[in-house]
Design a protein around this nucleic acid. Structure first.
Length: 659
DNA sequence: TTATTACCTG
DNA sequence: CAGGTAATAA
């Protein structure tokens, strides 16, 4: 047999750490990866769904691309800028030259239509400010209220005349709006086709309809019923805009800022990934697309962390100074804190809440650590309860991408947990699917220069996942969110000392590679755990339990095989393919959520163990009270190196498959 | 002594 | 899966 490492390194080669992305263009009939209503399900339009990001990101994108000169006017560019300084038609045609790129549908007529409507709107807006405000308020009033207004108008004929004229103007405007609206909708469809690609087009036939309509809604006046949509937060905010901004400007392009939990620093996303529209259609388009998504997620994560760190810094005056250091570049020297005994105390009492004096975080030098420690404390729950108010000025995400300090694994996990907490909490207020979370976490990992993209995270497990899934929620899961993984992240975030269900899950997956991990190995692969005697022995105990289960199954199936009379049946029973019952049991035990591909190596080792048990039983060695020892010895030597991805905090399982 | 393991039990 | 215990090795 090859050496363990050799054989091990063979198998995971073709795996893609972003399997999810890679499979993006494929249609997914079951649709469980991108359920309707999930933001992630419509990556193209997700920027559009965010009132802010829509205007900023997509706006800047199309500005860069010069795609839709007509639409340009309603973006960040002020109206005066467009109509006052430039002649729209000229602008339109000149931009068209650079913007067409050969394949875009001719948008100039739409743009001109749009400009006409725009002018009309400008005219009416130019009347007077208060008037237009009243106008807007009146916009949705009933006819009776109009009549009341007219009665008042009788008193002053001039006013009435002008009002009549305005009314006509309004109607005209409305008509044109309707017309424009239709064209906009069409335009949206074309944009969708151009950017979404044909595959997505077909894939999203079912939920794509909703999507298109939603986008159309966002670009249209909000007379449409808003009930029953999938994105109530955005939609509601958009509607609010329309109602409060009477003149309807905001209704057409709801770029008005709404304080969402996550505001994306738009241009970074699209500009950062150097995406040219044409590339989306090419073969690599999917991957670029995925990168765009990744980057967007990373941005979100970075900003959220930034905000919460800031928040916490504000809530803890003593930590402010450290929190205002450029983000999370961990102070590696923070361990030379003047009160090392505090650390000792923590380590000695891993399962006990920290003493109040430790929480004080007395020295700014150690601020990062202390800053984040309480995140784990339940008392901090109120921290992120409000939907994260003040938004920080966006910072580059590289500030957050942890340059993972292998020599000092204590700090990063805290950061990681902070992210986990954040995301877990964001779950409640954002329509993000938990897939997004996992991906964003992985995004951090994959951006980590110290650990290049993980090769081990593999393809779908060919074994039937149904049975594996019927277990449902994790047994030990603190299943707050409907997915075990999200819950695990949450749980992991709730204590930086001691072991969480997430750690248990990780340990189980590690068992696929190593049955007999040394304590130093454990320390290496659980960098987010504060190791003390108790925690170490608990981890060791876990692996002991894993082994116990493993060997019990092996012996059981070996005896079962030994009972077979026919040699063929016996041989069959000693095979351990991925379609066998024994495999299913093992997978169920160590990979309950079935979101990790069982390494081939583990299957082989299991079969070795099975056969060893079998031969021992066959030869009657099992009469010896310590007959298993020799088998243990054999299995002990078959440990494989654990993939590097396990060095990172958190579960390495949720990267490529959710369900 | 301490650490690790297997085994048993709940 | 954790607690307890005994055996064993360093």
């Amino acid at each position: 047999m090859d050496s363990p490492s050799d054989r091990f390194h063979q198998q995971p080669s073709q795996m893609c750490p972003f399997e999810l992305y890679r499979s993006l263009p494929d249609s997914n009939p079951s649709g469980h990866r991108f359920p309707p209503g999930s933001l992630s399900s419509h990556p193209l339009f997700s920027p559009l769904m965010h009132p802010n990001s829509m205007s900023q990101k997509w706006g800047s994108f199309r500005q860069r691309q010069g795609l839709f000169p007509g639409l340009l006017v309603d973006d960040d560019v002020s109206e005066e800028d467009v109509f006052g300084k430039r002649e729209f038609g000229a602008t339109s045609s000149s931009q068209r030259g650079s913007g067409e790129r050969g394949q875009a549908p001719e948008p100039s007529d739409w743009g001109q239509d749009f400009a006409r409507v725009k002018r009309l709107r400008m005219d009416s807006a130019a009347r007077s400010e208060d008037e237009s405000i009243r106008e807007g308020k009146r916009g949705r009033k009933s006819r009776s209220s109009f009549r009341m207004d007219e009665k008042k108008g009788m008193e002053q004929g001039n006013r009435r005349e002008s009002r009549e004229g305005r009314k006509r103007q309004r109607q005209e405007l409305k008509l044109q709006l309707e017309e424009t609206r239709g064209k906009l909708l069409e335009l949206q469809r074309k944009v969708w086709r151009v950017y979404g690609g044909q595959a997505d087009d077909e894939k999203d036939q079912e939920n794509g309809g909703i999507n298109l309509d939603e986008v159309a809604d966002m670009f249209s006046d909000s007379d449409d019923p808003l009930v029953g949509n999938g994105f109530s937060p955005q939609r509601c905010s958009s509607k609010k805009n329309n109602e409060t901004n009477g003149n309807g400007n905001a209704g057409i392009f709801p770029e008005t800022s709404v304080d969402l939990d996550l505001e994306l620093n738009g241009s970074q996303v699209w500009l950062g990934c150097s995406l040219i529209r044409g590339e989306w259609e090419s073969a690599e388009g999917g991957q670029k697309f995925a990168q765009a998504l990744k980057q967007e997620l990373a941005n979100v994560v970075a900003q959220v962390i930034d905000r919460v760190v800031r928040l916490y810094a504000e809530s803890d005056p003593e930590a402010v100074s450290s929190a205002q250091e450029p983000s999370m570049t961990m102070d590696l020297n923070s361990d030379r804190r003047p009160r090392p005994q505090a650390v000792e105390q923590v380590e000695a009492l891993p399962l006990v809440t920290k003493s109040p004096q430790d929480k004080r975080a007395p020295v700014a030098q150690s601020g990062h650590k202390d800053l984040l420690l309480p995140q784990a404390n339940p008392s901090l729950a109120p921290l992120a309860q409000p939907p994260l108010p003040a938004l920080l000025p966006p910072r580059g995400k590289e500030h957050f991408l942890p340059s993972y300090p292998p020599d000092n694994p204590v700090h990063l996990p805290l950061l990681h947990y902070t992210m986990q907490n954040l995301f877990a909490r964001s779950l409640s207020s954002l329509p993000l699917h938990k897939d997004c979370l996992s991906e964003s976490f992985m995004d951090f990992r994959s951006h980590n220069s110290a650990f290049p993209p993980l090769p081990l995270l593999g393809q779908l497990d060919p074994s039937p996942s149904d049975r594996a899934r019927e277990v449902g929620m994790r047994a030990g899961g603190a299943g707050m969110v409907d997915g075990a993984d999200a819950a695990l992240y949450l749980a992991a975030g709730s204590s930086q000392e001691g072991l969480s269900p997430c750690h248990l899950k990780k340990a189980k997956l590690m068992f696929f590679y190593t049955r007999y991990p040394s304590s130093s190995t454990l320390k290496t692969y659980f960098p987010d755990v504060k190791f003390n005697r108790c925690v170490t022995s608990q981890l060791i105990k876990w692996f002991s339990n894993f082994r116990e289960f493993f060997y019990i199954q092996m012996e059981r199936f070996a005896r079962q095989a030994a009972r077979e009379v026919l040699t063929s049946a016996r041989e069959r029973a000693l095979r351990l393919g991925r379609d066998t019952e024994l495999y299913r049991i093992l997978n169920m035990h160590y990979n309950k959520s079935n979101d990790y591909q069982v390494p081939e190596r583990f299957v082989e080792i299991s079969e070795v163990a099975l056969r060893e048990f079998f031969t021992a039983i066959q030869s009657g060695r099992d009469a010896d009270p310590c007959w298993k020892k020799s088998i243990y010895k054999i299995i002990c030597k078959l440990d494989s190196p654990v993939p590097d991805s396990f060095r990172l905090p958190g579960c390495p399982t949720d990267t490529y498959r959710m369900g």
